[in-house]
Design a protein around this nucleic acid. Structure first.
Lengths: 149, 149
DNA sequence: AATCTATTGTTTCGTTTGTAACTATAGTTG
DNA sequence: CAACTATAGTTACAAACGAAACAATAGATT
């Protein structure tokens, strides 16, 4: 009787392997060049796109949990890469934005991020990249509504 | 001037989101039903396929680091799901295998794993599943030789 | 307005994780 | 075979993480 399960063929396992390798490599790249974690980079990236976001906004944009955001924001404020101001209508919230230094860092990291993405897909054809991207989007959309548990 | 970077379109980011969601859901499933982590499951899965593997063998099969393997093995031995015996030719290594209980657990978790995989791909067509799987393999093969850093 | 509930964001605490140091054994070289 | 180097696996320490408790404010209900 043949064994009924082969871990190396298990799609979620291979997906996890790939994602961990890619994220690990990118994390190394950002850390070596600019001393920031992927979480911090996500905050910076989003604040470049959506200045004056609150921590809750970031939570929605980045799918990070609020503790992680709180800690990333704390470190980035300490390094003066982002700054906070009071929210007009909500005394609990603070509006966050990049400082000039934060914006500079973002502009320096962007090409690095793009190079990582480029390297990731460099062995794929244009069609394959498109397929891969579309399938991931499809899965992300369905996953949100269908928790596996 | 349009902003030059959109995190939500960044492929490594979306890949990470997807993988984290899938792995998280599977981890919940295994933990609730059989009180094992994904790392422990990987060890059990591999030992079902390759009995008498050493920790180093597991390291190669599962791409986990040796500390993680050591700890998973320790917990599984404590729960008597795997057993170890001396290695004939190497006094440092131990040969690991599933106990009857470990084998039973593996057989119970396999259909659960398969259901997770099935659910993951349930919104994709047969063609898309094939494409996705092939592309991931292609990327895994190229990633090993091409560290992004 | 007083009270109750919900939300924002931080902190605390226990767990998990990874790096590096370590022990023990193998293998290699002079 | 003595000494060095490499490898198998564990342990120790510190950093990262997440769940839950928390303080502060908002909004709803009476």
């Amino acid at each position: 009787m043949p064994d009924t399960f082969d871990l190396e063929k298990f799609l979620p396992y291979r997906l996890s392997l790939l994602s961990n390798r890619v994220s690990g490599a990118i994390a190394d790249s950002y850390r070596h060049s600019h001393q920031i974690s992927i979480s911090e980079w996500r905050v910076i990236a989003i604040l470049g796109q959506y200045p004056h976001s609150t921590a809750t906004d970031l939570q929605h944009f980045t799918a990070m949990d609020k503790v992680n955001i709180s800690r990333s924001v704390k470190r980035l404020i300490k390094r003066q890469l982002i700054a906070s101001e009071n929210h007009e209508h909500d005394g609990r919230a603070r509006k966050l934005s990049l400082t000039a230094a934060g914006n500079d860092l973002r502009n320096e990291v962007i090409p690095r991020a793009q190079a990582c993405e480029q390297q990731l897909t460099s062995t794929l054809s244009t069609d394959e990249i498109k397929q891969f991207s579309q399938i991931i989007d499809k899965l992300l959309r369905s996953e949100t509504s269908n928790p596996i548990v």
